[in-house]
Design a protein around this nucleic acid. Structure first.
Lengths: 236, 236
DNA sequence: TAGCGTCCTCTTGGATCCAAATTCATTTCA
DNA sequence: TGAAATGAATTTGGATCCAAGAGGACGCTA
């Protein structure tokens, strides 16, 4: 029952924090822990607990939480606490529709500018995915593969949004890949996509990307509507 | 010289703030003041000044500033202060390229779902723009017109991003419309766009929208490269 | 007189203290 | 016995106090 009594145990604090940058360290640590999925969504974060954990007063913790709230990573409710924001869930379809729009454009812009090294990098990520069994690492490699294809798009704002979407997916995968029962992501999709990109065939690449993402939203939607997904939620 | 000795004077505080929601009130007030352009970009915000202004301690001010920083509305530098973030400036082309992508999609999705009331609303905004001379109000009406066309798009995430872009443009217009020398926005574009939308002609509407936005980026780029724009920056 | 170094002040960041609000448990009444 | 009300404990929000860093001014020296 109390197998994981406190998700905060997953947070390691190396040593005493150099007082003058406590807030930024705390913010960064918490953010990665939330994105990693080490702190599951729905977890209530107590200011005092975090302060004790980091060995500081509640003050820098408070500010860090505020910033994470502004980044939509958690919801702070007055006098009630900060809870880690819920995942895609209901709006998975909207989320993926937006991702298709953004990533298609990024891919379009990026393909003509990609060079041999980018191709090799992407291929390496695919190969690594082949042998990787750690779910956290799989999520990361998936993101890196996609970004390798988009990275040359000459629009930083677009890339930022694309990366936000990928980060969100990564976070979701870390939570749910195991429960969804698929240890591996669809490697055929990745290989076919890379081939099309290497051919500089923009339209075929975009088509494959759309197909890939649509498959993703389908899997996720089916999973979220299944009883298994609910178990994880009710068991808190 | 000291015609505007302190931009904070533009902030009106009606009465004492109900202590328990000080932070949110301050954040909201500052945000709208920044978006309005009442606090020009580059302005340094002193915590103590704001605290005195709102009649509270520095604490809620500090948190409000943190949240505004996370929203990219201002940059906080340690021990140096919070300065209102710079505007579009360098990446105007990227910004508008992204807007075209997002707003085109929103328009596509929205057009089939718009009803008569939406058309009338949009037409009203155009009419209001015709007679309006206040730059602040012009920026607002421009945003409302565009949103009236997109509002039915069934993707909240997309709409959020669209609205972010429009807010940014509105902020820029409030600053620079007068200096750019164009008191009126291109009303022909708006009317033509609305006609195409009323015809439910998706492709024509998107084409007109792209043309409209491209015209916008052109005007802004030309303006930013002109000496006039620099004057405003150097005169702080 | 020009350049450099030191000191002072201004501003932000963190700690501690106090108040307000919410929640949960216990008790009491119907 | 169940439900509502009241209270205590927990937790967050705000105020005040103290420390640390950055910038500028002043003075000293070459």
């Amino acid at each position: 029952m109390t197998q994981k009594p406190n998700p905060l145990n997953s947070i390691k604090v190396n040593g005493p924090i150099p007082a003058h940058l406590a807030r930024s360290v705390i913010e960064e640590t918490l953010r990665s822990a939330i994105l990693d999925g080490r702190i599951p969504c729905g977890t209530a974060l107590r200011q005092q607990d975090l302060a004790d954990l980091f060995g500081v007063s509640r003050m820098p913790v408070r500010e860090a939480l505020r910033q994470l709230e502004a980044q939509a990573l958690l919801n702070v409710i007055a006098h009630k606490g900060a809870v880690v924001a819920p995942l895609v869930q209901g709006d998975a379809v909207e989320t993926y529709a937006l991702r298709i729009l953004l990533e298609s454009e990024a891919l379009r812009l990026s393909i003509p500018l990609l060079d041999k090294e980018d191709f090799e990098q992407a291929a390496r990520h695919i190969d690594d995915l082949e042998t990787e069994n750690n779910y956290t690492e799989i999520g990361r490699l998936n993101r890196l593969f996609h970004m390798a294809l988009y990275c040359k798009a000459p629009n930083q704002r677009l890339l930022r949004l694309v990366e936000d979407g990928l980060n969100e997916e990564e976070r979701f995968l870390r939570f749910n890949l195991e429960a969804m029962g698929l240890g591996k992501l669809s490697q055929e999709d990745h290989r076919a996509l890379l081939l099309a990109v290497e051919d500089r065939d923009v339209e075929r690449s975009v088509k494959l990307l759309e197909h890939h993402l649509n498959r993703g939203v389908e899997v996720i939607t089916r999973y979220l509507n299944s009883p298994d997904a609910l178990n994880k939620k009710t068991s808190k």
